[in-house]
Design a protein around this nucleic acid. Structure first.
Length: 647
RNA sequence: GCCGCUUUAGCUCAGCUGGUAGAGCAACGCAUUCGUAAUGCGUAGGUCACGUGUUCGAGUCACGUAAGCGGCACCA
């Protein structure tokens, strides 16, 4: 047991000769056999992962009782999950970072050693590294893939390896597949950014560790650029801009996740809603309206209470009957479909509604308008024959394409969400139904030519779906639009039609919400446009700025002409205001710029005399003077085409 | 929901180790009447998120609640 002592005194010059199959090589030897490679020889992921080890080493140094979880590289850096006796606070980060930099300077070697699983376990047990022991046992009993899947850390060990590789950096020894840089001087530049809770092995039933997130890049320039980028991104945050532009507010008195839409924000809702309604009219949809609360029986029948109850609010009792706030509009639309008899000639039947829904979201998951508890969905349900399902789904995809082109959204990906076939308890159990629905969806997607990625375990309980995934400026991914193929509703609600042969046949139901919910979609648009909405979506499209008090009457006249203009906004005229504050023109221009108002109409003596306006555009500056009619025509075109004009 | 942090005027934020609050912007008033991103002067505005406690004394300390933030879990 002579190695035991070596392991127990893991200080600087100790090696593991006695315990490990072969001793770690001494640093000076490494230096000789491993001449220092040029830094660009390491991929940045290697540096990041090595930096994670370096952070662990620094923490081990500062907090000798620390227990370590996993610490993989991320897209822009790395993190490490750690359990400490006392929780770290943000003030501890600089201290850790400082220690890391000291270690980096010392060029600590990354020493690799291979041992058997049992030896590794014994070592980690002696070290009190409970989490590592658990990982090693999992690795020994279930293999490497299980670890990668469970922890999200693929760096632990390679595929199908039987021996465990260990890496030592300073006082920190970790099981790790590698590869690593040669020494700590090569990890590159890093910045510790945040500290947060994370469940061990990603399971809420387990203990929480502290996760330290860090940025890491090869050069300081890249690190600084990323910090700058993050700073710029933060400026687009819809929560910040939403406040600055008075679009919405969340108040404690109303409740978490229940936004109040202010007049400015409501304009955007109104315009979007009209876009949806117009396109749906052209697409052969009929509009319907359904109530906000509904008897529990309907949700039993739809499958919501069996499969979706934890997302629903507690029922309220009315005349001895349970009523629920509606989490989805589909059961109601199904009832509307069921209200009539349908011939094969009538299909598809398309029912559309901007429907308000309420869903329970865990308090910690709420975020501005992105994740809320009450929202309004651009919903519709298409009832069609099986032979129509593919084409109907395709035309829904084309509607998406139209919207996304219109908004200039191209940074999204499509997720074909499948059920977890091995674990169907979250889904309606009908393997054949799932397969047919999936085949139809895939066929439609393949024919559309739009690329998509299949992801297991994300399907709705009643069918597979295609979600449009976008990232918020803070990097969180959200499904912003969703389209689902439902093969269950037809059974639960006995939804059918009479076919040419006189037989009653079942329908397929397509659930679709290409504009998602107002809340999430507008949150995304705010960030997408950084608050600079195109004219057709701008809460205020033009502000009239009188140069002196004597121009106020003319300014009021201009505003009235704009309000009464024949411009096809949802409000039936240009959204115009006047600025009669006791301020200089310059200040009023500044205020209008800050509010991202597209048109500033400066009026003074000359304009009043000629019946003109001096036009300044938010993005293009001074456009010179033009007649009021010419300006109206310009805005009318922008409104009609939903596209801004150039300079 | 969980871990950690935060909450002071409409907004953004100061306020050291306890001695009953301050700035800038915004608002309002007065003066100014101005030609494309901030005119000057003045006035008003705060149960220091809420509650309980410790203390002679709490914005400051402790506990609880609420809301927000960073993550994790959840995510139709």
């Amino acid at each position: 047991m002579r190695g035991q002592r070596g392991f127990n005194s893991l200080n600087r010059n100790c090696c593991f000769a006695g315990f490990l199959a072969r001793p770690f090589r001494e640093p000076f030897k490494l230096k000789k056999t491993n001449p220092v490679m040029s830094q660009d020889a390491f991929p940045v992921e290697t540096r990041r992962h090595s930096a994670a080890h370096l952070m662990a080493a620094a923490i081990k140094d500062l907090y000798p009782t620390a227990k370590f979880g996993v610490g993989p590289a991320t897209e822009t850096g790395f993190f490490y999950d750690i359990a400490l006796d006392e929780p770290l606070t943000p003030e501890d980060l600089p201290k850790i970072e400082k220690r890391m930099k000291e270690l980096r300077k010392k060029k600590k070697y990354f020493q690799r050693e291979e041992v058997s699983a049992d030896e590794a376990i014994e070592y980690m047990k002696k070290e009190g590294q409970d989490f590592k022991v658990e990982l090693l046992e999992l690795l020994r009993d279930k293999g490497s893939t299980a670890i990668a899947k469970e922890t999200g850390d693929e760096s632990v060990v390679g595929e199908g390896e039987t021996t465990i590789s260990f890496y030592r950096t300073g006082d920190f020894v970790d099981l790790c597949r590698g590869p690593h840089v040669d020494h700590s001087g090569q990890v590159g530049h890093f910045k510790l950014r945040s500290i947060a809770g994370a469940y061990w092995r990603g399971d809420a039933k387990n203990a929480q560790l502290q996760r330290i997130h860090a940025l890491a890049f090869e050069t300081k320039e890249e690190l600084d650029a990323e910090l700058l980028r993050l700073e710029e991104q933060a400026k687009r945050d819809h929560r910040k801009i939403g406040k600055e532009l008075n679009l919405y507010t969340l108040v404690e008195e109303v409740g978490s996740g229940l936004p109040l839409w202010l007049p400015n924000g409501n304009v955007i809702r109104d315009e979007l809603e009209r876009l949806g309604k117009t396109e749906e009219h052209k697409g052969g949809y009929k509009r319907v309206t359904t109530p906000q609360i509904t008897k529990g029986d309907l949700y039993h029948r739809s499958g919501h209470l069996p499969y979706y109850a934890e997302d629903m609010y507690a029922p309220m009792k009315i005349d001895e009957t349970d009523y629920y706030l509606k989490p989805m509009n589909c059961p109601h639309h199904h009832m509307i479909y069921a209200h009539d008899q349908w011939s094969y000639r009538d299909l598809p039947v398309r029912l559309a509604e901007y429907g308000n829904c309420y869903r329970y979201e865990a308090s910690g998951g709420l975020s501005g308008l992105m994740r809320v508890r009450g929202f309004c969905m651009n919903d519709a349900h298409i009832y069609c024959r099986e032979d129509q399902a593919k084409d109907e789904f395709l035309s829904v995809m084309h509607l998406h394409a139209k919207y996304y082109r219109m908004f200039g959204i191209d940074n999204f990906w499509m997720r074909l969400s499948l059920p977890d076939m091995e674990n169907l308890d979250k889904y309606v159990d009908d393997a054949a139904g799932w397969k047919r629905a999936l085949d139809i969806l895939k066929e439609a997607m393949d024919e559309s030519g739009y690329p998509y990625k299949e992801v297991e375990g994300e399907a709705a309980f009643y069918g597979p779906k295609v979600d449009f995934m976008v990232k918020s400026v803070v990097g969180t991914e959200y499904a912003i639009s969703t389209n689902q193929l439902d093969f269950v509703a037809t059974k639960n609600f006995n939804l059918g039609y009479t076919d040419a042969d006189g037989e009653k046949k079942p329908v397929y139901v397509i659930h679709r919400a290409p504009l998602g919910t107002h809340e999430r979609f507008i949150a995304f648009l705010i960030e997408h446009y950084a608050g600079k909405f195109p004219t057709w979506l701008s809460p205020v499209q033009a502000v009239v700025i009188p140069i002196a008090d004597r121009h106020e009457d003319y300014a009021a006249e201009v505003k009235k002409k704009l309000l009464f203009s024949d411009v096809d906004t949802v409000h039936g005229g240009i959204r115009a205001e006047t600025d009669f504050a006791s301020e200089r023109m310059q200040k009023k221009i500044r205020n209008a710029q800050t509010k991202q108002i597209p048109y500033m109409l400066v009026v003074g003596d000359a304009e009043a005399e000629n019946g003109e306006v001096a036009v300044r555009h938010r993005d293009h500056g001074d456009l010179g003077t033009m007649t009021i009619d010419a300006l109206i025509e310009r805005i009318a075109k922008e409104q009609r085409t939903r596209t801004d004009e150039g300079a």
